[in-house]
Design a protein around this nucleic acid. Structure first.
Lengths: 233, 233
DNA sequence: TTTTTTAAATGTACAAAATACATTTATTAT
DNA sequence: ATAATAAATGTATTTTGTACATTTAAAAAA
């Protein structure tokens, strides 16, 4: 459709456009979601995803990037459109559609002061409070999307620090899918993918022996993609 | 985001919302896309996807359903959101974002007179003309989505008549993925899925021997889904 | 210095799934 | 009766997935 026809439609167009971010993080224990308690009306005191109206001079995707930057201080974050929530009555205030976008961030990279300043809190994904409007639905949809995407693209690395161990990667996938993997088979499969670079360092924070650190190798991954090889966890 | 804050944003909100349909069909030969030649400005005489502005009193998804019904006469069609195209300058006329939605229809079910009345034409997917705005991009994205989804959900049946043969199903998948499958292995895999019901009739339109007709069995498929079994072509 | 403790690292046998590949069959047309 | 056409079928091989138990490195405690 082209808006060069706007004259014919001007009288109809009173629909506001927002974007809401479903922000996932991982703290080596469980998957977290960044939400905040609204400090002003409407829905003062209630939990909500973090979002914004789309401004006239920014793209929908850039609006989401802006929101993320304003809250966490982060740029160049992994973010994908989830879907448009466009029911007529989804927002009792006024007709407003929103574009859900989910983001994967490395919690330790966040600007903690900025996050706190906005009253944003990392909540355990599997024990979320009630959120305003259809935000709980958005989170549910986003998790489904995350699982689907994680099954054909190694996005897990987006949630981990640059250097990570195989056991922590396994833990992450266990949290995403809520099932346990066999450590030997998991390691075998990940190593076989051949997208990791093993480092000489160890992380001894969780065992006396320590676990070797690895780095994700995007070059190798892109070669895989070009060769048309489809990853399957 | 909630639009109960509209007062603060009212001055900013001059963004039009449209939806465009990427309508796929299959004629037992190749995959087709339904497009039309614009008869009025803007872009008069150019090829375009079929879309509409979203009306104040209809949801985004219903707007797409309306478009599909107005053009093809069909309801209850398989349709999924693709993504939002929300770049600031994507439409030179006025700020307008559009929600791309792809649909899979059974060509023979269409209201042919209605389609013709609208100047809509089925074009070979792999030999499309230049379309207006970013519509070619939308089609490319939709095909990627279609391939992805077809790999974990048997949506191929949405494009076939109620009764179809295994060879025609194979041909469809070959068209979607643009690769050839081994007829024995393809048949084995599809039968093993156990979501088809074999009929006593044959379709003799393409061979002397004739090929048995099958029907898709949604009940069996839903049982599979519930059991958590993930289809993989 | 030895022993204990902890989680990391490793290998193999078996089962299931994917792949490669050639012949027979049912039917119509000649 | 024969020829022609596409449909239908089976098997052996390779690849991938799964189940499962022991050893190892390092730190802490004795």
């Amino acid at each position: 459709m082209s808006a060069q026809k706007v004259d014919y439609y001007a009288s109809e167009s009173k629909i506001y456009i927002a974007t809401d971010c479903i922000i996932f993080g991982f703290d080596n224990e469980s998957i977290k979601l960044l939400v905040f308690k609204r400090r002003v009306a409407p829905f003062e005191g209630e939990w909500s995803l973090i979002g914004s109206f789309v401004k006239n001079d920014e793209s929908v995707n850039n609006a989401a990037k802006r929101v993320l930057r304003e809250i966490t201080g982060l740029e160049n974050v992994f973010m994908k459109q989830l879907k448009v929530y466009g029911e007529v009555d989804r927002d009792p205030g006024s007709r407003c559609i929103t574009v859900g976008q989910y983001a994967l961030i490395r919690i330790e990279d966040q600007d903690k002061a900025l996050v706190e300043k906005h009253g944003a809190v990392w909540h355990d994904l599997h024990e979320l409070p009630d959120l305003v409007l259809d935000h709980n639905t958005m989170v549910k949809d986003a998790l489904t999307q995350l699982r689907l995407r994680a099954s054909y693209q190694p996005i897990g690395f987006e949630l981990l620090p640059e250097k990570f161990t195989i056991p922590s990667l396994q833990k992450l996938y266990e949290e995403i899918y809520q099932i346990e993997f066999d450590a030997r088979n998991f390691r075998k499969k990940i190593i076989a993918l051949d997208v990791l670079t093993k480092l000489d360092e160890k992380d001894k924070s969780s065992s006396k022996k320590g676990a070797f650190l690895y780095k994700f190798n995007p070059t190798k991954y892109n070669k895989l993609l070009e060769a048309g090889i489809n990853f399957k966890l």
